[in-house]
């Protein structure tokens, strides 16, 4: 089975998650072997997901944890239990 590039794009997310059926996965895989356009799209998407998930991109503000637990402590002291 041969598929067009734009069909391959609709499978990118499932391909990365490994949730495609075996048949479609093989079809997409074959396409990727000879299509540099789709390969570059897949590689860039995978790369971008790794970068955006990096802990250093979204950081907690300085002192966030201390302020939170301080505020909780005030609440916990007021009440015996939830």
């Amino acid at each position: 089975m041969v598929i067009e590039c734009k069909h391959v794009w609709t499978y990118i997310s499932d391909y990365l998650d490994g949730t495609l059926s075996e048949e479609i996965r093989v079809t997409v895989q074959k396409h990727l072997e000879h299509c540099e356009l789709c390969s570059a799209i897949l590689d860039s998407t995978r790369n971008i997901l790794v970068l955006t998930a990096d802990d250093r991109v979204f950081e907690l503000p300085v002192g966030f944890s201390e302020r939170l637990h301080q505020r909780l402590e005030e609440e916990l002291k007021q009440k015996k239990g939830p």
Binding site: W9, I12, E36, S39, I41, T45
Partner: peptide, 14 residues
């Protein structure tokens, strides 16, 4: 409708 990706020919791993 479908979202189409940015088209590129090569990707240098970052």
């Amino acid at each position: 409708g479908a979202v189409s990706p940015a088209l590129l020919r090569d990707w240098r791993e970052i």
